[in-house]
Design a protein around this nucleic acid. Sequence first.
DNA 1: AGGTGCAGGTGGTCTAGCCCACCAGATATT
DNA 2: AATATCTGGTGGGCTAGACCACCTGCACCT
Lengths: 244, 244
Amino acid sequence: MKLNRHSFTPLYHQIEQTLRRQIESGELRPGDGLSERELSERFEVSRMTARQALRALREDGVLHSERGRGTFVTEPKLNVQTRQLLGFTEDMRRRGLKASSRIIRFSRFKPDEALRRQLHLESGAEVWEISRLRLADRIPMACETGFVPVDLCPQLKRAEVERGSLYRLLEEIYNIRLSRADEILTAACATREEADLLSIKPRAPVLVVQRTVYAADETPIEVVRSVYRGDRYQAAIQLKRSGR
Amino acid sequence: MKLNRHSFTPLYHQIEQTLRRQIESGELRPGDGLSERELSERFEVSRMTARQALRALREDGVLHSERGRGTFVTEPKLNVQTRQLLGFTEDMRRRGLKASSRIIRFSRFKPDEALRRQLHLESGAEVWEISRLRLADRIPMACETGFVPVDLCPQLKRAEVERGSLYRLLEEIYNIRLSRADEILTAACATREEADLLSIKPRAPVLVVQRTVYAADETPIEVVRSVYRGDRYQAAIQLKRSGR
DNA sequence: AGGTGCAGGTGGTCTAGCCCACCAGATATT
DNA sequence: AATATCTGGTGGGCTAGACCACCTGCACCT
């Protein structure tokens, strides 16, 4: 096992990625055991460095450690998957559904004060408005209206947005590293317009998700409001008891 | 600053708790700076140990570090607070509201197969059923039905449940250390019964939270279903973009 | 057969260092 | 006055050890 000692990516992160790949490829299977000392020998690093690699994987729930026994690849949770910062496309893929979308509106305009403040923008700046109907296996699932500063991706094309994942686009083409998001979930009644789009009855229950996405440097990237069909969508979360 | 070197609680955890107290008491204020080397001198531990204390606080968002500058007490987020594993009482207190409750049903019975499996119980075991209307500042906010294995707290009294926080009871009296929970959030329509209890119109939107709470050893402690008024309750979450 | 005790492996914690890139403010140079 | 350079402090990363509590399986003894 060879690491690149002169890379800018830290050793522990290279180890983490290696293990993650091995788990995804099936080379390491659920239940398989690892050991900190064995890893530190295999990768020729100190044990503390191996530990740091394992820590991240433990926090993701990919591995779990038992004192006195070892560290093991976690059995994949049946059913419940934790809510992650995923776009609709990625979210649906994880649920085993195929995402598609229909653009309802795609425009650029000068945001009002509230939105400008949410996106930390100067008063002259513009935003893209991306309004899409989201389908899973061709069934309407959500309608989503997002706002992204034009400065971040001035070349954004309707066709690009149409094809698929906005987040992948931002990460791969515009080189913006998404890091975290704040979400607020509420229950509401579908408006007539939403009901039409989603093919549900007016005033049927919907799950409304308002999300602000941030880059690694805490710059707001996107503000988005998604209205999910209450009868077909559920959000799974894992909570920790921390602090006191 | 003195640590108990012979305690069973690790040094880094003692440091973490000390800092947490100092922040809560106002002795350390938002914006104040700390340094790993300074802490390691002050507490007479190695720098790695001081680092480990800071890591936990960073992950909680209480502190944040800037390379080349230092580690600082984070300004408290206005408004948005992240969803934590809290009982209703604690949740409302954080929102600045006073929680109270009215017991609708309190009984013990033999669970059906589905519930038994969720709580990992043997076939003879019994559970408490605790069904409560939850109020915030005397306004109905949610109705909540929880199931707890009788074995965990055989002495549970109706009066105890009536007084307040079930979670505090479990932690302080029955010495059960809660560690995490899985939640599923969905939007739905209030049933007639729920609408009556919550003083809302029948078929008004409600946020349904189904939660399973686990102890540190992964034993399921409680399965609970809460129905929140859609017009008065929202759930805030923080998401991280991790792994791939 | 059934228990007892021991040895080796494991994760958890901790030490006392090291080098690096980065940042800020002071100092020196133009 | 503006600019470059130095300097001390910071977090990030890493090392090569150490001791502990805990778990497991094995050998030994009863």
